[in-house]
Amino acid sequence: MGQQLTGPIKDTTVFDLRLARRGQRLNRMCAALCSAQERDAFKRDAEAFMSRFGLSEAERELIRRRDFQGLIEAGTNIYFLLKIGSVTGSGLYRMGAQMRGESYEQFLATRNIRGAT
């Protein structure tokens, strides 16, 4: 791997090709959400949407439960995960609070200027 990546980092997922392969179906599904029509399709029938992209049952369950950290570990790239967050009404900071194991209010209290949203 060379010295650019020398080992795991605490509380951090490094999105590499291995993870990209694992998350291929999830990332492809999230990428489709760049289309307004596809966002509507997801909102109308998420189960059918997930079927179109061939998600495994475990992957579908992560989406159903809005398990954002689980989705990261299942190989969803964070920038692609944000697209799912958007259609499920979870903006970046709500997703982040969940990943930190905090409530939204608890998370905002850790910020320097919480009005900059």
């Binding site: 605490k10 509380d11 951090t12 997922t13 950290q69 990261i72 964070i78 995960l81 970046l92 997703m95 982040g96 609070a97 990943m99 930190r100 194991g101 998370f107 850790t110 910020r111």
Partner: peptide, 9 residues
């Protein structure tokens, strides 16, 4: 910045 995991934020 970090946007994922427990180190989000």
């Amino acid at each position: 910045h970090q946007l994922q995991g427990r180190r989000f934020g």
